[in-house]
Amino acid sequence: MKELNVIVGGGADYYCKNCKATANNFNKVVAEKFPDLKINFSHKNITTPEFIKEFGTLLPPCLIIEGTIVHDGSIPTESMIEQAIKHFI
């Protein structure tokens, strides 16, 4: 079973409304289009110095798959998430 490490980044230490919407969209796409994929979700605060060192300054909500920035600044649509997942599997 293929695994993907996914980070949802937001402006706080918890999942805000937009982070939740990003994660929900992601889960929906996985459930519908990639049922065999295992996702390891984590959430990060994008305003910490550690995060900025690693990924630069991003706008929330942002989506990072396998250490690659996939999207930031708005909730990614399902078709964009599907495109991104296809790139990594």
């Binding site: 900025i52 060192k53 690693e54 990924f55 630069g56 990072i64 798959i65 250490g67 690659t68 920035i69 996939v70 999207h71 990614p76 649509t77 078709s79 964009m80 495109q83 991104a84 790139h87």
Partner: peptide, 13 residues
């Protein structure tokens, strides 16, 4: 930054 960025195709829709 160290991380790479994937450029997704964003349609008008």
């Amino acid at each position: 930054p160290k991380a790479k960025r994937l450029v997704l195709k964003k349609s008008i829709h």
